[in-house]
Amino acid sequence: MNHVIRKLEHFVHLSAADRAVLNRAAAQRVRSFAARADVAREGEKPKDVHLILAGWACRYKQLDDGRRQILSFLLPGDICDLNVFILEEMDHSIGTITPVTIADLPREFFDDINAEHPRIAAAFWWETLVAAAIQREWTTNLGQRTALERMAHLLCEIFYRLQLTGLTEQNTCEFPLTQSDLAEATGLSKVHVNRTLQDMRAGELIVLKGKILMLPELDRLMSTGLFNAKYLHLNHDGRQLDAND
């Protein structure tokens, strides 16, 4: 739960009791999935909210002819659709990219925190607002940014989101996405993705070795992708609040 709590405390300071509640809830039902497996499928009736404890996953839609659009990447600390249990059925699927460990949180847990733990509830609302802001940026990516801008923007976003949960080291982070994943997320062909990554390497914007991404000049990459991190609300530090609690 360290990644989850670190992320939530960026928005709202959590007391020791709040952190204990989260740890207990996350330990009740933990499941592990292999890479490239479905956690939830479109059309299924959702029962619980999934919390990503470890690994990378994605939301996606798949057309009848097999074409797939990745709607968002889900990283450690992310909550998969906070209020999903109010739906009659899933309107999208959630699939893993790497092996993933999730905690299933039942509806009763959210009823309890809304009544008894307002700071956890507030942190979850922050999580929802940031997820919606990320979705708006993805829409802008698909509609307005060039291929190079899309890719640069996506890489900056992933790096900052991983940094928020302590999963970066200086200018380096894990990067298990394939070129097919990137194509499905950016609306580009695999050939176009390959060409774009080659151009970024040649311009010394990125270094990709195996499943490790290095950003030698983050500021220049941000400029290339027209990236402004304000939508991630990184300047909000909830840990500064109620510091004596």
Score class of each variant (00 low, 15 high):
residue 88 E to N: 10
residue 153 H to W: 07
residue 41 R to V: 09
residue 89 E to C: 05
residue 209 K to W: 04
residue 21 V to A: 06
residue 74 L to T: 06
residue 147 A to G: 03
residue 145 R to G: 06
residue 110 F to M: 06
residue 204 E to L: 08
residue 67 R to H: 09
residue 177 L to R: 02
residue 193 V to P: 00
residue 180 S to K: 15
residue 81 D to I: 03
residue 7 K to M: 08
residue 224 T to V: 09
residue 180 S to I: 14
residue 23 N to D: 08
residue 207 V to W: 04
residue 154 L to G: 02
residue 207 V to G: 07
residue 87 L to Q: 15
residue 217 E to L: 09
residue 212 I to D: 08
residue 159 F to P: 04
residue 47 K to F: 12
residue 23 N to R: 14
residue 146 T to E: 10
residue 171 N to S: 14
residue 95 G to E: 03
residue 58 C to W: 11
residue 181 D to I: 02
residue 151 M to R: 01
residue 176 P to T: 05
residue 165 T to Y: 04
residue 39 V to P: 00
residue 52 I to G: 00
residue 19 R to M: 03
residue 11 F to A: 09
residue 5 I to S: 08
residue 118 P to H: 10
residue 229 A to Y: 09
residue 182 L to F: 02
residue 126 W to P: 00
residue 171 N to Y: 13
residue 181 D to Y: 02
residue 223 S to A: 14
residue 193 V to S: 05
residue 235 N to K: 11
residue 165 T to H: 03
residue 16 A to D: 11
residue 243 A to F: 15
residue 19 R to T: 01
residue 129 L to N: 12
residue 61 K to W: 13
residue 107 R to S: 13
residue 195 R to H: 06
residue 6 R to W: 03
residue 32 S to P: 01
residue 187 G to V: 01
residue 14 L to N: 04
residue 235 N to V: 06
residue 230 K to F: 05
residue 121 A to F: 09
residue 81 D to C: 10
residue 190 K to W: 02
residue 170 Q to V: 03
residue 241 L to Y: 12
residue 115 A to M: 04
residue 109 F to C: 09
residue 35 A to T: 08
residue 22 L to N: 01
residue 183 A to E: 06
residue 205 L to R: 02
residue 235 N to L: 11
residue 77 G to E: 13
residue 88 E to Y: 13
residue 110 F to I: 00
residue 33 F to D: 10
residue 31 R to Q: 11
residue 63 L to I: 00
residue 28 Q to L: 12
residue 193 V to Y: 01
residue 112 D to Q: 15
residue 91 D to R: 04
residue 128 T to F: 15
residue 225 G to C: 05
residue 48 D to R: 08
residue 198 Q to H: 13
residue 86 I to W: 12
residue 233 H to C: 05
residue 238 G to N: 11
residue 166 G to Q: 04
residue 208 L to D: 01
residue 109 F to A: 00
residue 33 F to M: 02
residue 144 Q to H: 13
residue 30 V to E: 14
residue 104 D to L: 14
residue 215 L to C: 13
residue 115 A to E: 12
residue 128 T to C: 13
residue 42 E to V: 00
residue 113 I to W: 04
residue 138 W to G: 03
residue 116 E to Q: 13
residue 29 R to W: 02
residue 12 V to P: 02
residue 144 Q to E: 11
residue 97 I to R: 01
residue 10 H to P: 03
residue 14 L to G: 01
residue 222 M to S: 08
residue 219 D to H: 08
residue 50 H to C: 09
residue 230 K to W: 12
residue 85 F to K: 01
residue 126 W to F: 14
residue 242 D to H: 15
residue 44 E to V: 02
residue 123 A to T: 02
residue 32 S to F: 10
residue 228 N to F: 07
residue 38 D to R: 10
residue 79 I to D: 04
residue 235 N to F: 09
residue 127 E to T: 07
residue 169 E to C: 06
residue 53 L to W: 05
residue 69 Q to Y: 08
residue 136 R to C: 01
residue 67 R to V: 08
residue 136 R to S: 10
residue 23 N to C: 11
residue 141 N to S: 11
residue 76 P to C: 07
residue 128 T to S: 14
residue 5 I to W: 04
residue 12 V to N: 06
residue 63 L to G: 05
residue 219 D to N: 06
residue 170 Q to S: 11
residue 196 T to E: 09
residue 191 V to A: 12
residue 134 I to L: 11
residue 127 E to Q: 09
residue 54 A to M: 05
residue 142 L to T: 00
residue 153 H to C: 05
residue 133 A to K: 07
residue 79 I to N: 02
